[in-house]
Nucleic acid binder design. Structure first.
Lengths: 368, 368
DNA sequence: ATATGATTTGGGAGCGCTCCCATATATTAC
DNA sequence: GTAATATATGGGAGCGCTCCCAAATCATAT
């Protein structure tokens, strides 16, 4: 935008040379695209650039006459202020970064991330923010961090599923750039995050099974090096305790969120003949269903299943899966809200939010 | 960045007031963050700002001595040029936009989009581009278009699944901003796009069924208002023709990509007693499997199924699904490559790329 | 030796915006 | 009425970068 395009420059040189030969040719030009800037809006509305800027930024010190005039002009010409210029001048861009590590294979099999992205995006749209997406790959991590910190375009960052001692988190802290994590981090001190209350969700699910009367309740856990895995297992144990059932480690299998692990571990569990299984994520419950079908068991009669997530496919499983609903879209929205707040007011206290879950009873555990 | 932070300004005013009372207090300050810019790199390497800029932009007219010096300094201090400033000065940002319409419910149930995003993102990482993500919502569409066109931050756009007469496409054409579509658009004239060869993929799939010996081959199509739906159906018809089977419209059901539609339409098809079904997308094949299981049919023996997509879950279905593999990640990568090319050279001819598919034979059609 | 050309270098201007300051105008107090 | 204050406005400077031009340096030809 700054410089003239090449073909104009070439023409210009050509004309200059002609002029040296004794001719006198004049060349005039203007931009064909109707680029608008504050100055042109100002001219159109009969005020100064500064006043236009004040109107756009909702400054109180503008007469209502001026404000109305400017707003109507902006409306009319469909003006959009240049983010890059604003970034340079003020260091604020209304752009946030969303970082998802790709080593998570869940990204491609589990609708969790699409839903999260959807929540984040819709909330950003509503607040007039934009989203920059980075699927972080280990080999480009250093460069990505550098860009996030210094390219001058990001006001804040949402990070999903960090690892322990994440270099990005450290860099953000050092640089003092606002960020929010989705999913409780291992080291949660002084860190904004949004998560669901995994433990109480799991508690409720398993208690539901116990109240129906199941006695030998097994579980397939999520990866136990994640906060999610740990909390849901803790909920399971607490429920057994409350129901006066005793914990049996042979009934606990550690999965990894994948369908495949649900399939394999269910087969392994069947040796113990459980009468119910709490499968700590719905994709694993899909694998579990497959194993049970192959074993010739009728779900909801021979064995009860409760999942965790309530993803779009869960009501369409056969039989429909009883599961703990996570408000994934809402998590994304809250993450954005917290982030925007701390962008706009750097002194806002740290927020750590656990959203409530809900038990959705369908027919996979024998009721209804 | 431009202005001083509030607390410094307050302090400053305070000191100025003190000075009026007869005291003389001096206040000095500097930025604690080690912001680097071309000027500081220049100072550190003993050359001028211009030379640093030339090195960063790979301009040929730099002595190798200067280039090495500058590069080593950049390396040492981990310098990242400010995108916003570059955007203002040169109109190039190394940022592309990715637009996905949210009215597509596929986004949340079908791993197609996560995989596409993955391909796009990895390719951008490799080329040092960044991705801005917009899930376009109808109510914010106008503003989104305005932002894409005029906020000065986007060099080009990738659009997935446009609708007919998409206002975004029209705006991009008018503004002359480079863009690439993923998925053949209805109006493809003069438009860059990447797609797979849907027709020949479907042809091969159905021909495979015919060669095994199935005679009554039904199909569940994708939505027929999409290019995908039309092409795959055309491939089905062509295969019947080549195999000397006659087309029967009662064996054709129009689905909408969803599991649910696969389920319902399979039930409806079973009345016709087909011996094989070509299901034009794998998520619909999941629904189809469910209907067949409920009907007590053994897939691969009583009835043969071939899908289209080869998604991560397809090999884990029971029985594993024979399907047409789409190189989704590769589509994303090619879209980025084409886009970057046309950003860097505006006169590049239009590219319309059909990537080949591959038939992956598993046990759902009775072989192997 | 000088003249000519090619290569390399440094500094000025300006992209569109925000912030600050100085000035102009409106409001209130006396 | 004037003085004091509050509110509204316009213009300058500068954010970090790229591009352009002019000057300096180097290489080659005469």
């Amino acid at each position: 935008m700054g410089a003239l395009p090449n073909h104009i420059n070439i023409l210009l040189k050509f004309v200059q040379n002609l002029n040296k030969t004794g001719f006198l040719i004049k060349l005039t030009w203007e931009r064909s695209q109707n680029y608008m800037n504050l100055e042109s809006i100002a001219k159109l509305s009969g005020v100064s650039r500064s006043t236009v800027s004040r109107v756009i930024n909702d400054s109180p010190n503008v007469s209502s006459a001026a404000r109305e005039k400017v707003l109507s002009v902006i409306q009319q010409v469909d003006f959009q202020p240049n983010i890059a210029a604003r970034s340079l001048a003020a260091g604020k861009t209304q752009v946030i970064g969303l970082v998802i590590p790709t080593h998570i294979t869940r990204l491609f099999s589990d609708p969790f991330f699409p839903l999260l992205i959807q929540g984040i995006s819709s909330s950003c749209n509503a607040s007039d923010f934009s989203v920059m997406l980075w699927l972080s790959e280990p080999e480009h991590e250093r460069r990505m961090i550098r860009k996030i910190l210094y390219n001058g375009i990001i006001d804040g960052v949402i990070i999903s599923s960090s690892v322990i001692n994440d270099p990005l988190v450290n860099a953000l802290k050092e640089r003092d750039l606002p960020f929010v994590m989705v999913g409780e981090p291992i080291d949660k001190e002084n860190t904004n995050f949004v998560d669901v209350d995994n433990q109480s969700g799991a508690l409720r699910a398993v208690l539901h099974l116990a109240r129906i009367g199941y006695k030998k309740i097994a579980t397939i856990t999520c990866a136990l090096n994640t906060a999610v895995g740990i909390s849901r297992l803790a909920g399971y144990e607490e429920a057994l305790h409350q129901a006066n059932l005793k914990f049996d480690s042979k009934l606990v299998m550690e999965g990894d969120f994948s369908q495949e692990s649900g399939y394999i571990l269910t087969k392994r569990l069947l040796v113990q003949k459980p009468d119910a299984i709490f499968v700590a994520s719905d994709p694993m419950a899909q694998g579990c269903y497959r194993a049970l079908h192959e074993a010739g068991l009728t779900i909801g009669k021979d064995i009860a299943i409760v999942g965790f997530d309530d993803l779009p496919f869960s009501p369409h499983m056969s039989p429909p899966l009883t599961t703990v609903r996570q408000p994934i879209i809402n998590m994304g929205q809250m993450a954005v809200e917290i982030l925007i707040n701390s962008i706009q007011d750097a002194n806002r206290p740290v927020r750590q939010l656990y959203l409530p879950t809900e038990l959705i009873v369908r027919s996979s555990c024998g009721l209804s």
